[in-house]
Design a protein around this nucleic acid. Structure first.
Lengths: 335, 335
DNA sequence: TTGTACGCGTTATCAT
DNA sequence: ATGATAACGCGTACAA
């Protein structure tokens, strides 16, 4: 592997000059520039980026830690984040916590050692205390989608889940539903908390009676959503609508409803949250809340890069994106 | 940011000793070890991994370049690759070519500069010449799923797409179909070529007549599959079965069939390839070929890591995994 | 068991 | 416009 000195030797210049042409600096004679470039070609030279990074103390790399890349919601945001990062000459390390609460801290440590310039967390738990640790190191990060319980001082890009859930319940109410069940993730996710809060808010606002029986939460999400649905359908009186806190869970709900021989929409309304791509498929037609993932992802990555380059950690990025109701067919229509 | 010297100073030892405790070497007195560890804690020390990497000439990082993380097929393999890599103390850089043929080479160059220890390519095009360039640099890589036209000397993990397609056509034939359409990606993907080859092989073997009209290929995949289906259904006589070269396309085919008011399975059989998770959903029930992505991904990453650590680039990893027919409902049943 | 000294491949400073 | 050289933070002989 040729290095900068080999090039210098072959081109009969100093390594400083070679460095100049590598970095496209202008103060170098055209003639010597071509000499150097030829030498680089001849030796198949590849600049050693980590040596450079060590010197300039910047790696142009970021860490993306997310909950589950299988979930289309995360896949869609990961795609956009990686794209925009690359366009700006950043590379991204991908980590997948698989919602395993112990991985997070380990991955952060690895990324810190690797000297990343910043983080995006799409995997935060409600109770988390080590973000302070990161800010104390002065390395910027933005929380995506989920937040820990105390995040007023952090950068974040989230959806207004409380409002979205509220709107969704109201939509179901307007369709004539009064027994609306909620199937949500566990409280360790801020998204689950906020959606539950919005749900209760709406229940109260609309004067619907609160039924503990209709609230299902659990850690295994998809698998849990299926089981929860079976239970709900067996209860009496059963709910007339089921609100799943995300589309992946809603898919499981649909599956359970069908398996029980009930007609979706007709016998029971089902709605989700996220608007993942498959939700719009005409074999699914899931009514859901769109989060504009593409825009959310862009805001997150662009601002992270902005903070990194300006080093102005003064202005916090705190964005709450309004979700939008997407009415399809699983919720049925006004009779 | 504290460095190894700061620790050495505070702990009243040499930096060499600090290095020893960082790397958990045994030849250091317990007493001094704790002194050092305390100093590290006190100064909130984080070892600078890129300085270490430069010294030892190994980064424990790999590059994963894939075609489209949105496609569940790639998402599912990416997840497993990242998981196994992490378990083995490797970090992975993720790049998404979005099937843009120009990105690939650029990303390879970036990864090379970043001194990755190896690559996994799940995005190769049929015509590609720069892999030789990488082998000449001695850095190992494995081709995943797709291959370029000349890959006998490379490591690869692929499915037997030819055989899989052949089996699928035969399955449809056994169900009574004789006009079987193929909707496939363009020939720049080895997977598309191989599936087409298997399709023709079966057509011939079964004595079915070849109809040019029934073969649709195109670059835009999903969108193209939808349009192709519309055309196929309008042709006369229309096919009685449509074989889509992957599940994502099959989903679009299903969508088009439904939109045309036809009954899936009853009026026309539809089958896919990949067995992505949603294919098993009981609102979809897509008949498809399972590729055992989890195992394929494990083979790829484990072997890559093996090659890296053994440095024995002698034994090539060349694995072709047998796909397995998964019969669900979109293909209909024997009447 | 510990310390000294050098090198990894760059960039940056200061000369010239 | 170019060169000499000192960092960057760490590992690793080699010596002690």
């Amino acid at each position: 592997m040729a290095n900068i000195k080999d090039i210098a030797e072959m081109a009969q210049v100093s390594s400083a000059t070679v460095s100049r042409v590598i970095n496209n600096e202008q103060n170098v004679k055209q003639e010597t520039r071509v000499k150097v470039i030829e030498a680089m070609k001849k030796l198949n030279y590849i600049p050693n980026r980590i040596a450079r990074d060590m010197k300039v103390k910047k790696t142009n790399s970021i860490g993306l830690i997310l909950a589950d890349i299988i979930n289309p919601f995360y896949a869609e945001t990961a795609k956009r984040i990686v794209e925009v990062a690359n366009e700006n000459n950043y590379s991204v390390f991908l980590f997948n916590t698989n919602d395993n609460i112990n991985q997070q801290e380990k991955y952060i440590d690895i990324l810190l050692q690797r000297q990343v310039d910043g983080f995006i967390f799409a995997s935060a738990y409600w109770e988390e205390n080590y973000f302070e640790n990161i800010v104390s190191k002065g390395i910027p990060f933005v929380l995506y989608n989920r937040t820990p319980y105390n995040f007023d001082n952090y950068n974040y890009v989230v959806a207004d889940n409380r409002k979205g859930a509220n709107m969704m319940v109201e939509h179901l109410y307007n369709l004539g539903h009064e027994r609306i069940a909620l199937i949500s993730g566990p409280d360790i996710y801020s998204t689950a908390r906020d959606k539950a809060a919005g749900y209760f808010e709406a229940i109260k606002k609309l004067g619907l009676s609160y039924r503990r029986r209709l609230i299902m939460t659990g850690p295994k999400l998809d698998k849990c959503a299926y089981d929860a649905t079976i239970k709900l359908l067996a209860s009496s009186p059963p709910p007339t609508a089921i609100f799943a806190a995300n589309d992946s869970m809603a898919l499981s709900v649909l599956e359970a409803v069908k398996r029980q021989g009930l007609k979706i929409a007709e016998d029971i309304a089902v709605v989700g949250f996220n608007n993942i791509e498959i939700a719009g498929h005409n074999l699914i037609n899931l009514t859901t809340m769109d989060q504009n993932k593409r825009v959310m992802a862009e805001i997150a990555i662009n601002n992270l890069i902005g903070i990194i380059s300006n080093n102005s950690s003064h202005d916090k990025i705190q964005v709450t994106v309004e979700p939008q109701l997407v009415v399809r067919k699983t919720c049925g229509s006004i009779s």
